[in-house]
Design a protein around this nucleic acid. Structure first.
Lengths: 206, 206
DNA sequence: CATTGACTTGCTTGGAACAAGCAAATATTG
DNA sequence: CAATATTTGCTTGTTCCAAGCAAGTCAATG
């Protein structure tokens, strides 16, 4: 008969955190960040009007939490898949994993990328988190390219920048046309072949 | 002694439109869209707090006007530079022009791309305008690729998508690191050589 | 039982949107 | 050309709503 589950403090915050983050992700994907209100986040999660604001400090804080949590999951995934690989195979695996991530974690990643793109205009905490993720992606890619046999460091950096720009470009297209599921895989595969070709050219020319 | 310049209706709206668009562009670049208020736009332009809202209907309407006006300028520029060219030279000219546009029309283009990236999350009028520009860029590029000797239409489309993603990626980097002026030209040049290489590969393989 | 921590409620502030009003510019009429 | 009517650019008053903060309640912890 214990209708109230009687949870510990830690359990309560964990639960409410998760519920509110999920609610926020749903709202962002459905309405965009502008029309996502802290009030709705709290109430849809089953709490009061004020909890989201109290817990995350501000709307920007809520968004930062989303970026952190999804970003952490993504980086962990990426590490798991590429840790044993080097050179082009690592790049290919990263691309494949990104493609898979788009399909499985759809809403989470959608919200993540929406926040990513929107952060460009503002000096928000979100921007710093994203800058970190971005920097890390670039460094990893540059290392893989060096391992793939490109000796010129500047060429590695340039190609790495281009590669990550392309991934972001794919994310952009994926966001703007949600109705084409197989196209995402197509774009990822195209990027893979392009990268192989560019690496070949860069390798033979040095 | 005629202190009041005595303008016609058309002149008045033209003037206030321009002043307010300029003010808005400045504010967007400086503070981001969130902290750009219709009140400030009106007052900085030298009018009342209400004029921006009245003229553009809403904040979204103001942003749409900015995207339209800068987008139109950009498309006209692009047309002027590429109209007499075909194949790879057209692509190269488009890249060069984009690089030049980044340097000369800095603030305008900055605001334009900020609005571009932010529009991804919402179902706003801005999004439709941008979708149009984006579609047009893609079609032009695909045509140039076909003219460059790539016979497979699917390959043209894929490469065109990739190309435009890369341009957007460059815009992204340009926005996120305003303090590196020559890097922009570097990125554009890298893209040019990459495109030439990718075209060569696609041509010989068909 | 005291204290800490999770959560709620009341309130303030500020921006977006709208409507009513004012004044300058334009159209109409004798 | 002058007098009047009407349209149009712009301003001011007001409403609504979200963000953020502070004070309060109630459950868990030690």
């Amino acid at each position: 008969m214990s209708g109230a589950p009687r949870r510990s403090h830690a359990e309560r915050t964990d639960l409410s955190d998760r519920l509110m983050l999920d609610a926020a992700i749903g709202l962002i994907v459905e309405r965009g960040t502008d029309r996502t209100t802290l009030k709705d986040v709290g109430e849809i999660a089953g709490y009061s009007r004020g909890l989201a604001g109290y817990r995350f400090g501000s709307k920007a804080g809520l968004f930062e939490s989303i970026v952190r949590s999804v970003g952490a999951r993504w980086l962990a995934d990426l590490k798991r898949v590429t840790s044993e690989l080097k050179g082009f195979p690592a790049i290919a695996a990263a691309i494949d994993e990104h493609s898979r991530f788009c399909e499985t974690a759809a809403d989470d990643l959608r919200a993540f990328y929406i926040l990513w793109f929107e952060s460009i205009g503002v000096q928000s905490p979100v921007k710093n988190v994203i800058a970190g993720i971005h920097e890390r992606r670039r460094r990893d890619t540059a290392r893989w390219l060096r391992e793939a046999g490109i000796e010129d460091n500047a060429a590695c950096d340039a190609l790495a920048a281009q590669f990550n720009a392309s991934v972001l470009g794919i994310a952009y297209q994926w966001l703007s046309r949600p109705t084409e599921p197989h196209m995402v895989r197509q774009l990822h595969n195209d990027l893979k072949t392009s990268m192989r070709q560019l690496i070949d050219v860069a390798r033979t020319s040095s």
